[in-house]
Amino acid sequence: MLKINQVVSGYGDIKVLKGISLHVNEGEIVGILGANGVGKTTLLKTISNLIKTREGTITYLGQEIQNSSPHKLISMGIAHVPQGRHIFSKMSVIENLQISMDHANKKSNGKDRLSYVFDLFPRLKERLKQLGGTLSGGEQQMLAIARALVAGPKLILLDEPSMGLAPLVVQSMFETIQQIAKDGTTILLVEQNAVAALEIVQRLYVMDMGRTVYESQQITNQELDKIKEVYLGMSVS
């Protein structure tokens, strides 16, 4: 579904991605793990074209997208939930959702998507008129994901959904993400919280210095321990 081939990008003179390659198959939850500052967020922003691809190609459903306008991707079915949630804080919950629906892939039905989202996150339905900025951290993350979902995407790019959330909230958040994938949306998940992410991903890449340094096809317990120890610097007891 998504294929990233030898992509180089960065800010100004600094190259952050140094020829990264990876792919995501339809229906998967693919995780990208790695320490702070290895280029995980840059990777997602490059896919979304917020950052220009300097070399290499990004192919989505057989079409090269590295040169398309960033605001067109949502209607092509790619929704990006940015790190730090970035909900529109001075707009109400419903307006946050409407923004996304305004520019969504027109073919799918807006009302159905809205009720699907409210089934996933009943809390949002109770707070429709509330300003986004007044929601709790967990609710803001729900809104950020809901905002992506109401556009009816085929692929969601999720950047650190667990950031700043209490462990219990993280757990239910990841269950919901699993549910979303089950309902047919492909997910590319970037996480620092490896423990939580490892629970739900089907395949994963470990990133370091702007490249993938490890790719796992099938995650076994043995492999898991190795990843934790070698790449993520966690001690395995």
Partner: peptide
């Protein structure tokens, strides 16, 4: 209006507005 919503979103957070289809 829908246009106004786009304007406010672009004003609050241009990058995210772009991600959600607004030609900032």
């Amino acid at each position: 209006s829908k246009f106004g919503r786009s304007v406010r979103a672009a004003s609050l957070d241009p990058d995210t507005a772009t991600l959600y289809g607004i030609p900032t």
